[in-house]
Simulated assay, not measured.
Amino acid sequence: MTAKYWTDTDRQAVEQKPLEIYLFVDPICPKCWALRPIMKKLMMEYEPYIRIKHVLSGTLSTLNKKRSALARNEEYPVTRSGMYCNGSLRTSNHPIDSPFIVSVAIKAAELQGKRAGNRFLRSLQEQLFIEQLDISDFRVLQSCANEANLDLDEFVQDIHSVTASKAFQCDVKIASEMDVEETPTLVFFNENIEDEGIKIDGVYPYEVYVQIVEEMLLEKPQKKELPTIDQFLERFKVVATPEVAIIYNLSIQEAEKELKKRMFQQKVEPINAKNETFWRHIPQNKFPTT
C-alpha cells in the first residue's frame, strides 16, 4: 500500500486547518518525552486537519524541582504510552545546571522557524533521555543546534538575546492563563467554533486523542496513510522500539524484529540506553558507527 503524502493543495490549506493544539511541554519532563510517539502518529494521520503549537511551561521553581528529581536518579516508567522513561543522568556529577537556559535555547531555535525549533527540541530530548547528557551545557546546546541544521552563529547570538528570554516568559504567561499545572498538557481548539477548548493533561492511549480530534471536528475525518517504517526512520532519525510498536500497531516483539531486520540491512544502528534500545537511521552510503 502506498502512503499518501502532503500535496501542494494540502500545503496551501495550512492556514485553514480547523484544529489547533497547544502542546505544553517541559524539555526535561520524562512524560513529555513519552508522549512523543503518540503526537507523531496524530500529526501524521491528521496532518491536513491539525496544527500543533509547542508552548514551554514551568516557572524557574518548578524547573528546579524537576532538575532535582533527575539528579536523584528517579525513574519514570510510563506504561500508557509504552515508552519507559529513565530521567536520570549517568552520575550525580552531571546534573542539569540550568533548566532556564534550556528553555531559552528552545525559543532561540524557534526564531529560525517553527520546524527548526521542533527539530532542536527533539535533539535536546534525545541528548537527555538517550545519551543522558547535561543539556544545559553550552557545548551540548551547540551540538543540538548543529544536529537541527540551525544557523549556529545566529543561534549563539539569539540564545543571549532579550528576545528569546521574553519569548519564554510569554509561554509561561500563556500556561498560567490557561491554568496549566503539569506537563504534558494539550489544549484543543476548533478555529471555527467559539466554544472553549478541551484541556487534557498527562499521557493517555492514542485512541483518546483521536476521539477528541474527531469530536471537535464534528465529523469523522479521513486519516492519511502512515509512511512506511523505512520512511518513518528516515524522517525522525532516532526511534525507540515501543515507538514503532505504538505507531504501527505492532507488538514489541514484532517491532523489534522489524528493526533488527533493518539493522542487518545496515539501515539502522542500535543505541543502548539504560532501560531501552533506540535505533538511529543510517543515511545512504554511510556505514554504522558501532
Rank of each mutant, 00 (worst) to 15 (best):
M83E: 07
T289S: 08
E234A: 15
C29P: 07
V25I: 15
I229E: 12
R115N: 07
V162D: 00
A71P: 08
K66I: 06
I271Q: 00
F155Y: 12
S88H: 10
G117I: 06
I252L: 08
N118Q: 14
S161N: 00
L226A: 09
A148H: 07
Q125T: 05
L226F: 09
N272E: 02
T2V: 11
H54R: 09
I282G: 00
S103D: 07
K40G: 06
K40M: 13
S161H: 03
I101G: 00
R122W: 12
P205L: 11
R115V: 11
P242L: 12
A108N: 04
P270Q: 10
P18T: 14
C29V: 04
P184A: 01
D10P: 05
R67Q: 14
T91Q: 11
I246N: 08
T79I: 13
T290K: 07
S176I: 12
K220W: 02
K4D: 05
F129I: 08
Q253M: 10
S251D: 07
S61C: 10
S165P: 00
L152D: 01
K257I: 15
C32G: 11
A255S: 06
G197I: 02
K166R: 04
P48Y: 01
E47P: 06
L250V: 10
N272T: 09
M263V: 05
Y22P: 09
P77K: 05
P283Q: 00
A175K: 04
F278W: 10
T183L: 03
L121C: 02
C32H: 11
S88R: 14
T163M: 10
C85P: 07
L60S: 12
N73D: 09
Q132H: 12
D201E: 11
V102L: 06
G113R: 02
S123G: 04
Q284N: 11
V210I: 15
I21H: 12
M263E: 12
E47W: 05
D230T: 12
R36L: 14
R80D: 14
H94T: 14
N149C: 14
K114C: 10
W33A: 04
N149P: 04
F155L: 03
H160V: 08
Y204L: 11
E196F: 00
P27R: 03
S92H: 11
E234C: 15
K66M: 12
I52V: 15
I252T: 13
R115F: 05
D26E: 15
S136D: 03
D195R: 09
D137Y: 12
I130A: 06
L150R: 01
D134N: 13
N285Y: 13
N64M: 14
C85M: 09
E276D: 04
A148T: 03
T185C: 05
I21T: 11
T59N: 03
A3Q: 14
